[in-house]
Design a protein around this nucleic acid. Structure first.
Length: 920
RNA sequence: GGGCGCUUAGCUCAGCUGGUUCAGAGCGUCUGCCUUACAAGCAGAGGGUCAGCGGUUCGAAUCCGUUAGCGCCCACCA
């Protein structure tokens, strides 16, 4: 049957994936073998596969398949994340398209929509992972909001609360005015922006004299309305919440303001000037406006000096009507001239940035603005919605982090848990050493609802379920008649990461059933593969939870991948449209080709510049493997003597295989997967296809291909099988396809379960290896002669081996191999090479190809002279080194010996070259 | 503002504990080939002042210092 010369991935990939599923080859159960566990970083349940996933999941699959072939009980657990804020936003958007407002729905109604959406879009990404070839144990598929996981989350919340590690309180938090929820510090990203710095006039509130001596350093501002201080701010709208002005007591510029009162412009509120060394004397004018409700530092000052906090915003960051009320109240208390005041009613309901613009204009018009400058500022924005966050005082739940940091730092620093690359240890340590409490409550519905119930009489109880809550509430209130209906459960949900941090434990039910068989067997997991962008969100917190609940690390190694960028170095993103669709790539290049393309340039921790041409290279490699297989399986086999050349080739390739296997093991142990792939790539393409197969390939006689001898055929199939096994983790589909076709296989057998131990029979012979490498070099030289002289490959040549005293005889079969590979008529050993031949050196031995009248004497001479000059130069440098007494004395004996050998070799080569030149 | 990392061929990167002809690999480029496994291929070739400067050393791509450029992380200068 004719087999196509082109490999067609789409014909085989689906077939083998189904075969693997049908035969339960991905599934794992605890047994006596060493476990190898990987938990997938759960993608968003409603997400779709992008290039970042392709990178990440390919790496995991390579590691898992490799471990499985090492005979370990490999278990890769898949699952998805409910992605609280992201999913809720998507559902809200979809409802909006249908004209439904979230505010008009009850919690239950909304959740019904959210679950519908989850069922509709959920799991798509898991289906896509199958196309990639991922060998996950699908029976274990989990979801962060499924039953067991949810129960685990609640259990942990209650436990931590009872340990006193979770508390509830009013704090300044990061408020996302678009998502209408609090965020953790980690969810705030800072963006550089060009903004303005506004210098505003705060007039003295009284007419008491300002006494300032000349040259005492005071900087006093004065105009026809009176004396004033200047305050610089990037957020003029927040003056509506000003309750004090603060100066540094050591600031010579502002001594005159001590103990005075000033008028907040526009607002008309009279506020005190307080003193605190927090204020930077160098910044702006050294006068700081204090707005405790809208700035973290001002909040701290407010607490310290017992200042009122006036919240000027609604939750969506429009201006609240409180600003007007506060203004009326303060104006009633203190009579302030209308010169300084504008009614704040006009700003009520305005969006914050519109208000900023408006109020700045109004101040300029009213002469209350000293000046406006351009200013570059960093603005904290919501990681999810992108809008600038608003520091906001609110009641939230927090997890105390100091204890968590204490248990999580050492294991990483002393390498119980190893990071690849190790540089992230620093990042990790820095974060833990400066850790702050984790705000875990979100004003969202999609997520795990906080298990706290409020009593009608005030106070609350924390419980695993309603029954327990009721019991506790009755105890707490002393009211035995209390009913569930009297209790009100907290409306908030938990941060998504509060469930993901349990992932390696909750997947094996270690929270609900501590010490069960699964958790005891599979935990700690082996490797975690993830991006460095979630080192704090997820990696660090899993380590905390791991030590808190299992007293052990959750994983032994963390492999941090880079970011996938396009070839111009831009991050792949939807908005740029520079991200290819992985499924489309798989369609065009095959999953194996895409996996390989991804891995070809993916060193751990470095960003990878992805280019489709890499997938093309992967596809081409698949095709190469395919064709090598076609060649080998196309041979007729006959009993007969094994040619010496084939015997030589087999001995040599066995040695190469052994070397490559060692290299591969080393690469894997260091997580250098790109290097490992390159190792097998070169092994298969260069050594096996270009050299080994060419050396053993039976010749054509009279247009008829000769059969191959049994011994060579058998060993070649063995080599092929080992090669397939080495390549399988990277390219699972084609290797399975060919492995199945290589020999008769039993139903249910798979390369997946074939162990990658090097057969004991493959010997390892250094001398043989070196001898063949030398043969290869001779062949290359002859081919170069051909190429330079434009001699057709079909034309047979003669090779002369110029006899020399130390010339080592060619190995058994060497001559035969040379003749075949270089297409030689004959190999002669001569004492002097023929006139008119092209010569070259391999090692210190000289070879010549007689060319008759084809030889270009001038060119030949030039070539030899150039070579001679190079070696002479080299000799000089070696001699210089050896003449240096300090070198000979200080360098290790072996190094000196090496130099002596170099010298001797060079001298010998020079002699040979001189002879050749003379002969011309 | 603090910390970390990077700079090696046209591109993407290896190069470990300083020492082998150590200056490498893959891709791309150039030249010649449809040679009965493969043109998604075969054979051959060219290509680098290891970012600059200084130091340590018998010896530096490798260690130290410094300058420049780039990148990342952290931070409450309004």
């Amino acid at each position: 049957m004719e087999i196509s010369s082109k490999y067609s991935p789409s014909d085989v990939e689906g077939k083998w994936y189904q075969y693997w599923l049908d035969n339960k080859l991905f599934s794992s159960k605890p047994d006596g073998r060493e476990p190898y566990t990987v938990v997938i970083p759960p993608p968003n349940v409603t997400g779709v596969l992008h290039m970042g996933h392709v990178l990440n999941e390919t790496i995991q699959d390579i590691l898992v398949r490799h471990a499985r072939m090492e005979g370990k009980n490999a278990c890769w657990v898949p699952g998805t994340d409910h992605a609280s804020i992201a999913t809720e936003a998507k559902v809200v958007n979809r409802l909006a398209e249908q004209g439904i407002k979230k505010a008009d729905l009850t919690r239950e109604e909304f959740l019904k929509h959210a679950w519908a959406w989850t069922e509709e879009h959920g799991g798509i990404i898991l289906k896509q992972l199958r196309k990639l070839g991922c060998s996950c144990d699908w029976d274990r598929t989990a979801f962060t909001m499924d039953g067991p996981r949810s129960e685990s989350v609640i259990k942990v919340f209650v436990d931590l609360y009872r340990k006193g590690l979770i508390y509830r309180g009013v704090r300044m938090v990061n408020w996302d005015p678009k998502a209408l929820t609090a965020l953790s510090d980690e969810e705030v990203i800072y963006k550089e922006e060009h903004t303005k710095l506004y210098y505003m006039k705060y007039y003295l509130a009284d007419s008491a004299p300002v006494s300032v001596a000349e040259d005492d350093g005071n900087v006093v501002h004065h105009d026809d309305r009176g004396y004033y201080a200047v305050v610089a701010t990037t957020r003029p709208e927040t003056i509506m919440g000003d309750v004090a002005m603060c100066i540094n007591p050591k600031d010579p510029k502002n001594q005159w303001l001590k103990g005075r009162k000033v008028i907040v412009p526009v607002v008309g509120r009279v506020i005190p000037v307080i003193e605190d060394e927090y204020v930077d004397i160098e910044f702006g004018t050294g006068c700081l406006k204090v707005t405790p409700a809208h700035d973290v530092n001002d909040y701290m000052l407010g607490e310290k000096y017992n200042l009122e906090a006036i919240d000027i915003f609604n939750d969506d960051a429009t201006l609240s009507d409180r600003i007007a009320t506060a203004q009326q109240k303060s104006l009633a208390e203190t009579k302030v001239s209308n010169d300084y005041v504008i009614g704040l009613e006009k700003y009520v309901g305005m969006e914050r940035f519109a208000c900023r613009k408006q109020i700045a204009e109004d101040m300029v018009a009213a002469g209350l603005m000293e000046k406006i400058e351009d200013y570059d500022n960093k603005i904290g924005c919501s990681e999810r919605t992108g809008v600038p966050i608003e520091p906001k005082l609110s009641m939230q739940w927090f997890l105390k982090m100091q204890h968590m940091a204490d248990i999580a730092l050492d294991p990483v620093m002393n390498d119980d848990i190893q990071f690849y690359p190790a540089k992230y240890k620093n990042t990790y340590r820095h974060w833990l050493e400066n850790i702050k409490d984790w705000c875990i409550s979100r004003q969202l519905w999609w997520g795990h609802r906080i298990p706290a119930w409020y009593l009608p009489t005030g106070g609350f109880v924390v419980a695993e379920n309603e029954e327990e809550a009721l019991t506790l509430a009755r105890e707490k209130s002393g009211n035995a008649d209390l009913q569930l209906a009297d209790l009100r459960q907290d409306e908030d949900a938990l941060d998504t990461w509060f469930s993901s941090w349990l992932w390696p434990i909750s997947l094996f039910d270690g929270i609900r059933n501590p010490g069960n068989e699964e958790i005891s067997y599979y935990y700690p997991t082996a490797d975690l593969v993830t991006g460095p962008d979630i080192i704090f969100f997820w990696v660090a917190r899993m380590i905390m939870a791991g030590y808190e609940y299992e007293k052990k690390m959750p994983f032994r190694h963390v492999y941090f991948t880079g970011i996938v960028r396009d070839k111009l170095g831009r991050k792949m993103s939807k908005s740029l449209g520079n991200s290819p669709d992985p499924l489309d790539l798989i369609e065009r290049f095959g999953a194996d080709g895409v996996r390989m393309g991804m891995m070809l340039s993916a060193p751990a921790g470095n960003d990878i510049l992805f280019d489709e041409s890499l997938c093309e290279q992967g596809r081409n490699f698949n095709n190469k493997i395919w064709n090598a297989f076609r060649l080998v399986k196309g041979w007729q086999v006959a009993d007969g003597e094994q040619p010496e050349a084939a015997k030589l080739a087999a001995g040599w390739f066995a040695a190469k295989l052994r070397l490559a296997a060692e290299e591969l093991a080393d690469d894997f142990s260091k997580y250098r997967l790109s290097e490992a792939l390159m190792t097998v790539y070169k092994l298969f393409w260069d050594e096996f296809s270009s050299w080994y197969l060419e050396m053993i390939k039976p010749a054509y006689v009279d247009g008829k291909q000769q059969p191959i001898d049994r011994a060579t055929y058998d060993i070649t199939l063995q080599f092929f099988e080992i090669l397939l096994k080495m390549m399988h983790p990277f390219m699972p589909f084609i290797t399975e396809e060919l492995w199945q076709a290589l020999y008769e296989r039993q139903p249910g057998e798979s390369i997946m379960r074939a162990e990658l131990h090097m057969e004991a029979s493959t010997g390892y012979d250094h001398l043989l290896c070196a001898a063949v490498d030398e043969l290869k070099e001779i062949v290359t030289n002859v081919r170069a002669v051909r190429s330079q002289k434009n001699i057709a490959p079909k034309e047979k040549l003669t090779l002369e081996v110029v006899d020399a005293a130390d010339l080592r005889p060619l190995p058994e079969g060497g001559v035969e191999a040379l003749k075949k590979m270089a297409n030689l008529e004959v190999v002669n050993v001569v004492s002097e090479k023929s006139k008119g031949s092209a010569s070259f050196l391999v090692g210190t031995a000289e070879y010549a190809v007689p060319l008759g009248n084809l030889i270009d004497l001038d060119a030949e001479r030039k070539k030899l002279e150039a070579e001679l000059q190079r070696i002479e130069g080299f000799l000089v440098s070696v001699q210089k080194k050896l003449a240096n007494e300090r070198f000979v004395q200080n360098a290790p004996a072996a190094v000196v010996e090496m130099e002596r050998k170099k010298q001797a070799d060079a001298e010998q080569k020079i002699a040979a070259l001189r002879e050749s030149l003379a002969a011309l």
